[in-house]
Design a protein around this nucleic acid. Structure first.
Length: 262
DNA sequence: ACATTGACCTGAGAGC
DNA sequence: TGCTCTCAGGTCAATG
């Protein structure tokens, strides 16, 4: 699930469960998800510290540690967080388990090991080093900046939205939703969008992401006139009833309405 | 140089 | 039931 809205929901989850408690133990069941550090070093830096605050850029969640350092969570396609008490009910596919001094645990659960955990010093440096684009919900992310990010790109608008170096945080599901709300065909060339289309896309992007976060990134809670609930085989457009078109764009299964998104 | 494809990892669900 | 096949909301290296 983890696109920007999901990660933002996880961030709130960490805020409301896991801050300001001493981390007594870190167990790493799958070392290959540690990106830049050994199990041993990771434990050494994290154990007996506290999670102090959280931040997010695109699909990356940063959890700052007391003293220094910052744990970076990236959720891949299947990652999630679970806070729970009973140590015997450790969720299936827990890859990392943090145990707090109140005897609660935070599990980093991830069936497919496509996500990562890293330890870094400075989130803004991390973002810069990775060449990540702006976070679309950043207050400073203006229409001008969006325009700038799209200019010169020869790819489809679908692909540009999903390009983390262009804009950080949008994946396959939400790119479809944003394009549906903006009534744009996913194959439109990003560099050829009119001023007006860019503006509409910009506002649709913010609207969709905010609405999703409001609804805990739960597709079932999204308004009926959104694409997301209809985004499945045999689905029909919630606006006009036309059968949705399913096709691969940039290697990802994409849904759009042939009537509403010309 | 840029955009697109395949590999990565592993389980769920469909089809036989 | 059980096996096989395809697909999945991510990224990155390799390819065109």
């Amino acid at each position: 699930m983890p696109e920007l809205p999901d990660v933002e929901v996880y961030r709130h989850y960490v805020n409301s469960t896991s801050l300001h408690q001493t981390i007594e133990k870190v167990e790493i069941f799958s070392a290959d998800i540690l990106e830049n550090i050994s199990r041993r070093e990771f434990r050494k830096h994290v154990e007996m510290r506290k999670f102090e605050s959280t931040d997010r850029h695109g699909k990356y969640l940063f959890v700052r540690l007391s003293e220094d350092g910052c744990v970076v969570f990236h959720f891949g396609m299947t990652g999630l967080l679970e806070y729970f008490k009973d140590s015997h009910s450790k969720p299936k596919y827990s890859r990392v388990l943090f145990t707090f001094d109140n005897s609660y645990h935070l599990a980093f659960v991830m069936p497919r090991k496509l996500g990562k955990l890293a330890l870094i010093e400075d989130p803004s440096l991390f973002v810069k080093d990775r060449g990540l684009g702006a976070d679309p919900l950043d207050r400073n992310f203006t229409l001008e900046e969006f325009k700038h990010a799209l200019t010169g790109t020869k790819s489809t608008v679908k692909s540009a939205l999903m390009n983390q170096k262009c804009i950080a945080g949008i994946g396959n599901i939400y790119s479809d939703e944003i394009l549906f709300q903006a009534r744009l065909n996913p194959r439109t060339k990003a560099g050829q969008l009119s001023e007006q289309s860019i503006k509409e896309l910009y506002h649709a992007m913010k609207k969709v992401l905010k609405k999703s976060i409001e609804n805990q990134a739960d597709p079932n809670q999204m308004p009926r006139n959104y694409l997301i609930a209809h985004r499945k085989k045999g689905g029909a457009c919630p606006a006009c009833g036309e059968d949705l078109i399913v096709e691969k764009i940039s290697g990802r299964t994409s849904y759009h309405c042939p009537e509403c998104q010309r």
